[in-house]
Design a protein around this nucleic acid. Structure first.
Lengths: 227, 227
DNA sequence: GCCTGCATATCGTGG
DNA sequence: CCACGATGTGCAGGC
């Protein structure tokens, strides 16, 4: 890892073109060749960058200034013209052991698979990741009357999720084995459901269920409950 | 901007929980309080981070090691336990003049609005950002027969874009003023159209148009380019 | 290797 | 301030 603080100008050409006027920025060069151009603000996203794999060539511009040319195989290129170097250091970081996550959609699905009745009384799990021609349904369940219920789970429920569940229901309702006790219905489950998504779901006869992740986790392991 | 290279362990708690075991990483502290934890690989995305606005408090852990506690108003927190500092520097970057982009969807829409006939022969523009109850249609046009044609423009055409255009068409076809000369049809225009999106569009009677951005820009006045 | 779907997405724009 | 659409999205998992 090489970190350079420098007054520089950056030009990107690839899927779009982009330009950064001359200013002082932080340039991070990772050992896989990738380059990040950061300003002192914004968020984690750099102003400009080149994703690996790519190569960096250091050279001289027409007027004798240092110039880095970063190129990817796709043809994308990043040209960094350096007017003044403020700092330049290298560090050996080694390989990172990587990030461990907890609380993403997969965990929500696991918990709801164990407690389907929290979505609707009497609901029983048939199987997780129920296969269809256009992809797996998160949970396939059966209600007290034996009718099939497809559940789509999202961390945040937006309009796309409702569209996805609608496509599944359209397909599932062509299957005689599933519709024997009546049409397959849908439940859209999420920790948070956006108003527009709720309107669309309701309009299509899809039920909405707001899920409390912490409460579910509490049912799973009572020792984690506060009271 | 403060840049620290250190052997550290990181724990995030917020919308999810995440953990990074002890290893050497680069910590970038921006002047707005935001913190980035980078490894020597991956891409532009840090392993872990905290978005502004947030506050950083430097303290001591139970066993006397340096500990940073980064907190956002939302309750999200990042705890960085530092075992060994390899480097620590500060730099005044000033305010960045910002990024200028060219070639995003907005520009594609402008160019197609000027040259609608490249989508389909005889097509004439009625208006850009044609309003509907569920959002504006990118281009509303009329074909040689006077029939209304709704155009949805994407840089990359995927299934979501087809769904979006389908919703517009459903609504537009309820408007007697638009359907006087026949049903409103749709064109899905993009620089690249994914196979599944094309299949879905075709199935719904929506035409697909692959757009050549460079050719369109060539038809346009070159002096109007940003740079 | 391509394709699909999730994400602590981030970011701008328009109400 | 909230909500929605675009993004050089990145990234992991499946086929």
């Amino acid at each position: 890892m090489r970190i350079v603080v420098a007054r520089c100008q950056v030009d990107y050409a690839g899927r779009l073109t982009a330009h950064l006027p001359m200013a002082t920025r932080v340039l991070m060069l990772k050992s896989d060749g990738s380059v990040l151009v950061h300003s002192d603000g914004g968020s984690y996203k750099p102003l400009n960058w080149m994703s690996p794999p790519c190569t960096v060539k250091e050279g001289l511009s027409e007027d004798g200034q240092t110039e880095w040319l970063v190129e990817a195989k796709s043809g994308d290129s990043l040209r960094i013209l350096i007017e003044e170097v403020v700092a330049d250091s290298r560090h050996d970081l080694g390989v990172d052991p990587g990030l461990q996550k907890d609380g993403v959609e997969k965990h929500l699905q696991e918990l709801l698979a164990e407690h389907p009745a929290t979505l609707s009384e009497g609901l029983v799990l048939v199987r997780r990741e129920f296969p269809t021609a256009i992809g797996p349904v998160d949970l396939m369940c059966r209600d007290a009357g034996g009718r099939s219920v497809a559940v789509e789970i999202k961390r945040r429920g937006e309009i796309d999720g409702v569209e996805q569940l609608t496509r599944y229901l359209e397909l599932l309702n062509r299957d005689p084995a599933l519709t024997r006790r009546g049409a397959v219905t849908g439940i859209f489950a999420a920790q948070e459901i956006k108003p527009q998504a709720r309107v669309l779901a309701t309009d299509r006869g899809i039920a909405c269920a707001v899920v409390d992740y912490d409460a579910l986790r509490g049912m799973d392991d009572p020792s984690q409950r506060l009271f």
